[in-house]
């Protein structure tokens, strides 16, 4: 099968909350880029309307029972408001969907916890909340990741990019693309406190995937998901090269509790500091191929020094000239 569990050639998507501003935009763009990957939309009260280029149903149950497309649906993309996310997830899980993306930001932590426990009980794969989606250039994409013209950032290659930040997922893919590395799979896992898919989950999932040549991991302060990845690597479960950048060292110069960025990106009672995460990953790097970038852009040299082969030629020049200058 081509592509990882998160997004592969069998993926058929149903969008929950399909007629909303962001969701309908994503459906429109995806139809142009990867026609047919989105099978249906669900918005209560809008069933049977022709608002979108895909069929719209009132309930998920109607969508999966549809004789034409029902059996092709196996992945849900959730765009409903924060307080409706738990309901949407339960609707999907009860409807037999096994891979879910929660794009919605600001899901109540309590609801995230209930979702996580249900996910574990039912053996489903859930990415998010606060995910931007997934991109597998050889297969397609889920969500808005890469926007209208993802070719700016994405080209098929051997890197796996795992990031809490959706924006940085794309920015990183583009930085590497300019320098000669393409993407196998870019996954925006979101920055919530209770994350349904963590770095360690992805590394475990992809440890034997021959398409993976190296991993770029973008972390943040707060929680312990970066440390868990370090433990997994140190235990020898994941053996391929990993370049990591942990943002947020500057938070440590500010009063504790300053909230900036994701809900989970907060240092509480001395726990979850960026410097501790860096130290933990460096420790894992003593015996495993792990490199930490001090500056974000040094991820490129980290991947290079770990011996991850380029997928194509480096297109950059030594010194980047400004597009415009009004100096001199």
């Amino acid at each position: 099968m081509k592509g990882p569990v998160y997004l592969n050639e069998k993926t058929g998507i149903v969008v929950i909350g399909a007629t909303g501003r962001e969701a309908s935009q994503v459906i429109k763009e995806s139809e142009v880029l990867y026609p047919g990957i989105i099978k249906a939309g669900v918005t209560p009260g809008k069933g049977g309307t022709n608002e979108l280029s895909v069929p719209v149903f009132d309930t998920l149950s109607d969508a999966v029972k549809d004789p034409k497309i029902g059996s092709s649906i196996n992945t849900a993309l959730i765009y409903v408001p924060p307080v409706s996310v738990l309901d949407a997830v339960m609707e999907c899980l009860d409807g037999g969907i096994k891979v879910l993306y929660i794009i919605t930001e600001h899901v109540p932590i309590r609801d995230s916890e209930i979702i996580y426990q249900e996910k574990v009980r039912r053996g489903a794969v859930i990415i998010g909340g606060t995910s931007l989606g997934c991109f597998v250039p050889s297969v397609g994409r889920i969500g808005a990741i890469g926007g209208k013209d993802p070719s700016i950032a994405f080209k098929a290659g051997g890197l796996v990019i795992i990031s809490k930040s959706g924006g940085l997922t794309v920015t990183t893919a583009e930085m590497f693309k300019r320098r000669g590395w393409g993407t196998y799979c870019a996954l925006a896992i979101g920055g919530d406190i209770i994350s349904n898919t963590t770095y360690a989950d992805v590394l475990t999932e992809l440890k034997d995937d021959p398409n993976v040549k190296g991993v770029v991991m973008l972390g943040e302060p707060g929680g312990s998901y970066e440390e868990q990845a370090a433990e997994l690597i140190q235990a020898g479960v994941f053996k391929k090269p990993v370049a990591a950048f942990i943002s947020g060292r500057f938070q440590e110069r500010m009063p504790e509790g300053v909230a900036f960025g994701h809900a989970g990106a907060i240092v509480e009672r001395g726990m979850g500091k960026a410097t501790d995460k860096i130290a933990r990953l460096e420790k894992a790097g003593k015996k495993s191929p792990v490199k930490i970038a001090f500056y974000y852009h040094e991820l490129v040299t980290a991947i290079e020094s770990l011996g991850v082969p380029r997928d194509f030629e480096d297109s950059t020049t030594e010194y980047v000239k400004p597009l415009y200058s009004t100096l001199n």
């Binding site: 700016i152 980047v320 400004p322 009004t326």
Partner: peptide, 27 residues
């Protein structure tokens, strides 16, 4: 967008440089 901003810089005498993503974000 960057071209429009550059024109704004010129007409207002603002001093600086404008880059696209050829320059890595943290540079």
């Amino acid at each position: 967008g960057l071209k429009m901003l550059h024109e704004c810089f010129v007409r207002n005498g603002i001093k600086g440089e404008i880059y696209d993503s050829q320059l890595p974000i943290t540079e």
